[in-house]
Design a protein around this nucleic acid. Structure first.
Length: 431
DNA sequence: TCTGGGGTCCTAGGACCC
DNA sequence: TCTGGGGTCCTAGGACCC
């Protein structure tokens, strides 16, 4: 049996935890540069504000209904996520962090729990709410796909009290009938269109599909697994997250610039900053990367002919997590991609091909195994932890000498304070 | 005027290698 | 007339997820 715990309207809920006045009001959280809607309160959804919509398209709606629109505050959301996850980890034998606001719990052998699995899930909801102010829903089912589905049904039906357990064929059938096929985990826009044209419109009818049909229309073995999971046969196991943190197979740092950039030094400053950030994340999970990719994009909504994105990749001589090394290679890749005269709106750095801490390949040319670089990075991270983000950084990331640094940075005009992660932004209470 | 960021998995063609 | 098989690397792109 699996449990899926999913935070409701997560980013909005994080903001509300520190601003109770936002309770019961329409609230949205915006993406980087305040560009798109990425989280909506129930009230905002009810107004018909779509997920992922550019802000400028819904601005009239927002002004008309006095919707609170906030810039995204990832320091806050990451910290709140950590609080939720560490509590959840204490409540189940195994847990897989699936995303910033979702976790699968393995409930193997807990079926005999007294008084019931449902009561167990209700307790978890109550306690997460008490500790963090974050509302959640929980789906319980024999497969991950059904747990996702149960969670969705619980979210849509207030009468269920936020918890749905699918432990009998009857309950499973009932739940399958509640869910449209496009809302099944693993069915996106393309597959949904195809399924509708085949007359399959609900999760229930999808669950009756033949394996051949699933393989033919839903991406081969992936689709076959999906249908089996809906039928109650587990095809996806739990990938436990060690000590409440996620280990990634790739790490990216990509941004749309605050304004289009045409000068090499400005873009280099951005790419160096992105490489630095990616390297930090890499060191935090104690990996080293073998592969580095840099990409550069022109405006895909503009007049430039495709392709809008070009990328270049290098396999590093030795796996590394050193900011200095990675910035050096990123600069070389950028040089390969750069086309003078073009205007760029976005760039990114992606790290791949990880080796783990203890099993790193040694090199003939770095006989100390990169130990000096490692010690240096350790100091760098310690300084930045102590004195604040980017207190010490590579000069390349500052852009051209004598120019305004961070030409790539965007605006976040409606950002709330980092209430929980910065001493200088702690909540102040007037007595 | 204004259009996110970070992931996973899979496929495919061309270059190059043995 | 006939032109291998198998591998990696690189770039690109498609599908999905949150």
């Amino acid at each position: 049996m699996y449990g899926l715990v999913d935070c409701n309207n997560f980013y909005v809920s994080c903001e509300r935890a520190f601003q109770p006045r936002l309770e019961n009001k329409p609230v949205v959280v915006l993406s980087n540069n305040d560009g798109c809607i990425v989280s909506r309160s129930a009230e905002a959804k009810a107004l018909g504000i779509p997920m992922g919509e550019p802000l400028f398209k819904v601005r009239p709606l927002i002004e008309q209904h006095d919707v609170h629109a906030l810039s995204s505050n990832y320091a806050l959301y990451g910290d709140m996520s950590g609080r939720v996850m560490s509590y959840l980890a204490s409540q189940a034998p195994e847990m897989e962090i699936y995303s910033v606001d979702e976790a699968f719990l393995s409930l193997h052998g807990m079926g005999l729990l007294q008084p019931s699995l449902e009561a167990y899930a209700r307790d978890i909801r109550k306690e997460v709410k008490r500790r963090t102010h974050i509302p959640t829903c929980i789906g319980l089912a024999p497969t991950k796909t059904l747990a996702k589905l149960a969670n969705r049904v619980a979210k849509k039906n207030a009468s269920l009290g936020g918890v749905l357990l699918l432990d009998s064929p009857e309950r499973r059938q009932w739940a399958l009938e509640q869910v449209a096929v496009e809302d099944v985990w693993g069915i996106g826009r393309q597959y949904a269109t195809k399924l509708y044209s085949l007359g399959i419109t609900t999760a229930a009818s999808l669950s009756r599909c033949s394996e051949a049909m699933a393989r033919k229309h839903l991406g081969g073995v992936v689709g076959a697994r999906l249908v089996r999971e809906l039928q109650g046969y587990p095809c996806h196991g739990l990938a436990p997250s060690e000590d409440g943190t996620l280990k990634r197979k790739s790490i990216a740092c990509t941004r749309t610039f605050g304004k289009p950039l045409a000068r090499f030094e400005d873009v280099l400053g951005a790419v160096a900053a992105f490489a630095s950030r990616a390297a930090e994340k890499l060191r935090r999970q104690e990996s080293a990367a073998n592969v580095l990719t840099v990409f550069l994009s022109q405006n895909r909504f503009g007049t430039a002919p495709p392709p809008h994105t070009r990328s270049a990749q290098v396999t590093l001589p030795i796996a590394t997590s050193s900011t200095l090394e990675l910035v050096r290679f990123a600069r070389a890749l950028l040089g390969r991609l750069w086309q003078p005269g073009l205007v760029y709106v976005k760039a990114g750095v992606i790290l791949d091909g990880f080796e783990e801490g203890e099993q790193k390949q040694l090199s003939l040319f770095a006989p100390d195994g990169g130990e000096r670089a490692e010690r240096l990075m350790h100091k760098l991270d310690a300084l930045n932890a102590r004195f604040g983000k980017n207190s010490v950084q590579v000069a390349t990331a500052l852009g051209a000498v004598g120019k305004q640094p961070g030409a790539w940075k965007g605006q976040q005009q409606r950002r709330t304070p980092a209430y929980t992660t910065d001493w200088n932004q702690l909540w102040t209470i007037n007595s």
